[in-house]
């Protein structure tokens, strides 16, 4: 019997700081066949093990196409597993299980205008969405990117901003809640940026990911701009111990975030009994 809870061993090939307390880990599977077979789509996640402490779920931060047989995870240091991961260096061994969950409906939204709204570490699972659109630019209409963080040193993937902004038919905006001496850009909540940019809902789909409180207000802002629940795609976050529907942490109603999510259309979320 195959054992989905048994991680694959992988080696860290690159560890770099993305922001204060946030690191990007690039991992190469020790068994190259595993790496070749590890097929995933934007929005899916995996479990990353820091052996000796434990494992936690993280969004896969790149597209398969850009990284080939390696995978990337962006990890914010918030708890014990993430703290242990942050102790690791290039060459160290980690465990990887996955890929798990569903993905952003990038095939279904071809031909549409895409508005991507990401806050803080929430940009991590959105990065492969951006990469997919840029790599298949003619499949999609206008791309509007709104990135945010609490402060400038918490913005992630800053070195990729130029690439994103330079993509054809793309509008790119960044804001921070609170600026600092060197910050020349927008200051204000992402909801303010959203209202200022005011994307129209015509032939559009909004994709958002970020902390629960941000998502709550972004959903409100999109509604005010005329977006219907069917035009909004977001992610739900939950504690997880397995990723395969067994541990009992991520049930929202009869849905499991690990199996049926983490990506949900807003009209699906509105049908949940429980606000999650």
């Amino acid at each position: 019997m195959s054992n989905p809870l048994l991680p694959h061993l992988a080696t860290l090939t690159q560890v770099k700081d993305l922001a204060v307390g946030i690191r990007l880990f690039r991992c190469k599977f020790n068994d190259s066949q595993v790496g070749a077979n590890f097929d995933y789509r934007p929005g899916q996640f995996g479990f990353l093990s820091a052996f000796g402490v434990g494992e936690s779920p993280f969004g896969l931060t790149s597209t398969k196409g850009r990284l080939n047989s390696e995978v990337e995870f962006a990890v914010a240091r918030v708890g014990t597993v993430t703290a242990a991961l942050h102790e690791l260096e290039e060459g160290d061994t980690v465990g990887i299980r996955g890929p798990y969950g569903n993905w952003f409906p990038l095939d279904e939204v071809k031909g549409k205008r895409i508005i991507i709204i990401g806050g803080g570490i929430g940009m991590a699972p959105l990065r492969p969405v951006i990469q997919t659109i840029i790599d298949n630019r003619r499949d999609y209409d206008e791309l509007i990117l709104l990135c945010a963080a609490r402060q400038p040193n918490l913005l992630v993937f800053k070195e990729e901003y130029d690439e994103w902004a330079a993509a054809p038919n793309t509008r790119f905006h960044v804001t921070v809640d609170v600026g600092d001496n060197s910050w020349k850009g927008n200051v204000g909540l992402i909801t303010k940026l959203l209202a200022d940019v005011a994307p129209t809902p015509d032939n559009a789909v909004a994709i958002t990911c970020g902390p629960p409180i941000m998502i709550k207000f972004v959903l409100k802002g999109l509604k005010e701009l005329g977006f219907t629940p069917e035009q909004i795609v977001t992610t739900l976050e939950s504690k997880m111990k397995c990723g395969i529907g067994k541990c009992g942490r991520c049930n929202v109603g009869e849905r499991y975030i690990c199996l049926d999510g983490p990506v949900f259309r807003y009209d699906q979320i509105l049908k949940f009994l429980e606000e999650f």
Binding site: S56, P212, G248, E254
Partner: peptide, 27 residues
């Protein structure tokens, strides 16, 4: 249900007890 970042979608006994019975008898 508390996440490492502090967010807890079922923060009190009310939500957790309700989850128990809805999980068992509904979901």
């Amino acid at each position: 249900y508390r996440l490492a970042g502090g967010h807890n979608p079922r923060p009190t006994k009310r939500e957790r007890l309700r989850q128990r019975f809805y999980h068992k008898l509904v979901y």
